[in-house]
């Protein structure tokens, strides 16, 4: 059928367009970080030498030139930019200045632990936030509804480092249920995952509760109730799916921020992951490493939001990525 052929070809065009957009975003992120790290505000040679524990004053002009050559800093800026961009495209992230190892290797080493933590935290946030919102919309006892409605605001306003320290104090030191630090076994995931999940779950719950309440006030819900369906059925089968739509967009933003959130959680719980490495790289002014992590975080963000956009039509049949002929 011609119409089907038309649909698929335009879906492919849509996909190609979105992937191109994602690539452009990543390139822009790379360029901006390059600009910030290399052009502002101090001498990059000095920065990098200082990171390697060498004082610029102690070096003779010849030695300085040699150092510049070693880090490729004697090249014109444009050459440096394109060299590094080319390396990035080949999967070569350059050499870490503070750790004296290839950045790619470091990332490969640290990433699994961060991914495990991120996935656990997201799963936890979805379950916690979703349940809270569903109950808040369902419950009809006035005081309980108020409590459930206010709870997310508390979660959002608690700083994650504080939550982390509190959890360590109570569950690691006092009760001894979970380890306070390290990556040994699944039990070490629990406390940092909760730390990361609390603000995410709270924001999800806030948006989903509001969205469920809005949907439950829609005429189609009253019409469904007039068919003799139970409140539970109407909320689960009618309102929930429609309420998920605005939440989905927020979910993309929250998931994209996982790498950023891992910085706090991994630092507080001393977990050797990408987040902790990011914190150390910034302190050590390890420019290539910082740059690689920033681009990685941006890539996670872009890819997750692209996926969310692609699954949107599964949740809302009114949205198609292809123009429809009516």
């Amino acid at each position: 059928m011609t119409s089907v052929k038309w649909l698929t070809s335009s879906t492919a065009r849509y996909l190609a367009g979105r992937v191109l957009q994602a690539v452009i975003v990543l390139w822009a992120v790379y360029t901006v970080t390059f600009g910030i790290l290399y052009l502002l505000p101090s001498d990059p040679v000095e920065l990098q030498l200082a990171a390697a524990n060498v004082q610029v004053d102690e070096l003779s002009p010849a030695e300085l030139a040699a150092a510049k050559q070693q880090y490729g800093l004697d090249q014109p800026l444009a050459t440096q930019y394109f060299d590094q961009l080319g390396g990035l495209l080949r999967g070569d992230f350059g050499q870490s200045i503070s750790l004296h190892r290839p950045v790619g290797e470091l990332l490969a080493e640290r990433l699994p632990s961060t991914l495990a933590l991120g996935a656990t935290a997201i799963g936890l946030a979805l379950v916690l936030g979703g349940t809270l919102a569903y109950l808040a919309a369902y419950v009809r006892v006035a005081w309980l509804k108020t409590v459930l409605n206010r709870l997310p605001a508390v979660g959002v306003s608690l700083p994650p480092f504080f939550v982390g320290l509190l959890l360590i104090q109570v569950f690691a030191f006092e009760l001894g249920w979970f380890p306070a630090t390290g990556t040994q076994g699944a039990s070490s995931l629990v406390l940092p995952a909760i730390t990361m999940a609390v603000p995410t779950a709270a924001m999800l719950a806030q948006v989903l509760t509001r969205s469920l309440d809005d949907q439950l006030a829609e005429p189609y819900v009253a019409t469904a109730a007039a068919r003799g369906l139970s409140r539970q059925y109407v909320q689960a089968r009618h309102a929930l799916r429609n309420a998920l739509l605005p939440t989905l967009t927020l979910l993309g933003l929250l998931l994209g921020a996982t790498v950023t959130e891992a910085v706090v959680a991994e630092t507080v719980f001393s977990r050797p992951g990408v987040g902790q490495m990011a914190q150390q790289a910034v302190l050590a002014q390890d420019v290539p490493l910082v740059q690689a992590i920033v681009v990685l975080a941006a890539a996670v963000f872009v890819v997750i939001n692209l996926l969310i956009d692609l699954v949107y039509p599964l949740f809302d049949p009114r949205i198609t990525h292809t123009p429809r002929v009516s």
């Binding site: 005429p219 189609y220 003799g228 009114r318």
Partner: peptide, 21 residues
């Protein structure tokens, strides 16, 4: 009673059907 004894035909057909079902 609802649906079996009393049924409703609502006012505005553009907002009284679930859009995602």
């Amino acid at each position: 009673l609802r649906g079996r004894v009393v049924a409703l035909i609502p006012q505005d057909p553009t907002v009284t059907l679930n859009p995602t079902r």
